[in-house]
Design a protein around this nucleic acid. Sequence first.
DNA 1: ATGGGTGAATTGATATACTAGTATTCAAAG
DNA 2: CTTTGAATACTAGTATATCAATTCACCCAT
Lengths: 240, 240
Amino acid sequence: MSQRQRPGVSSPSFAMPGGVKVRRVTTASAIYEQLYAAILSLQMKPGVALQEKRISEEFGVSRTPVREALLRLAEAGLVEIFPQSGTFVSRIPVSAIPEAVVIRKSLERTTVEHAAEIASADDIIRLDAIIARQRVHAAHNEPSLFHEQDEAFHEAISAIAGYPGIWTILKTVKLQIDRTRRLTLPVPGRMDSVIEEHMTIRDAIAAHEPDRARDAMMHHLSAVIPDIDELRLLYPGYFS
Amino acid sequence: MSQRQRPGVSSPSFAMPGGVKVRRVTTASAIYEQLYAAILSLQMKPGVALQEKRISEEFGVSRTPVREALLRLAEAGLVEIFPQSGTFVSRIPVSAIPEAVVIRKSLERTTVEHAAEIASADDIIRLDAIIARQRVHAAHNEPSLFHEQDEAFHEAISAIAGYPGIWTILKTVKLQIDRTRRLTLPVPGRMDSVIEEHMTIRDAIAAHEPDRARDAMMHHLSAVIPDIDELRLLYPGYFS
DNA sequence: ATGGGTGAATTGATATACTAGTATTCAAAG
DNA sequence: CTTTGAATACTAGTATATCAATTCACCCAT
């Protein structure tokens, strides 16, 4: 038959337009992950030049998978490719950050309102578990693990609302914001404040009060905006 | 310091196999555009298998640019790639469509509210020009051109609000919705209703009344939701 | 000394060849 | 007749080679 059927693995629920990677451990995606993490953590500094050849030699593979990885990174806005010229780790686009914050607020507002309407008892338990882990990480002063659970908290709310695709979008929107935040020094007591704000949001969701949940979320998100102008002075060349 | 300029984008010229290659645009992105349009317009039906080799032969190019185009399409959710197995035009993810509508409403709400706050006289003129073109297309009964201007209207509002990135997100979110809409029969008089709704939105923006603009936009977006269950019966195999 | 043009070097874009993994098939065994 | 499993044919993934375009330094003419 000329018409082949899709492989037996019944398509594991397609999340959202632009969000699905059911890819194997292809070397291209492995390299993508590596570079993604390196750029996000600022190990690769904004503005530096990348060469396909050098990267391929470092990883011990050919240029092809490297190239595919770079193309995907370009689409995510983490690198910029100038044809016949060069590839560079993208600078943090200052002008785009306020918009990113607006987008995040818009989507998280919608999400948390709906979550507050339909959250089950189990859902609240899951949120509590995440907050509990945050307390542990805060007590041990482990910002990295703490941030991991912070992401988990917001992702969980998306899941509760039944909007997993929103989280997919938020991840890409948050990218440049998170990159910026890596530059800020840890503010003493900030982790405790975050936990408190999360608790407020959790309580509003548990009480099924969408309005209060929304206000709490908006307050939470407003508190996290980094001071870009200051960072710009500290790290010239990191921003565009 | 190598601060290069990005080369001019697009100018979607089409080169036939054997013809002159006027490559200001890469062949990879040319193929992407072609396939994108074909999938969106349902000329390529959901679920059918694609082969890199066959496509490359059809376009008269090698597999490499075809492959890059398919990777980008996969990221946009228009095709699904199963490594070492096959590539398929993705079925329309039914479960994701309600969420896509929610996302669209959330973002367009934020956009139109802000647009109503800061719109200038020039901005209103631009909106009027778009609506005028819609009237022409409606009079000549050209749904395709009409839809083009419909997109332009919403994009213009994003631009007015100073949130161009939101439109980028909306384009990908709208994808599956638009694909679905291609399946619906054209409703008589629908174009006229759209024009009227756009006028209401325009008036609210011009009057700097965010609340009214938001309500008008929400009403507009609610009127466009297709009946998925019905379509699912008409076109089995098109949805997942 | 300076301005402009030329050519070598660099690097991205494309083509082709090869490898490895998967689904289908068809025959053999129960 | 059903089930199972190995051969087969096909697919995407990767590697290598070639082409083309941009850059930049150097040299020559003014």
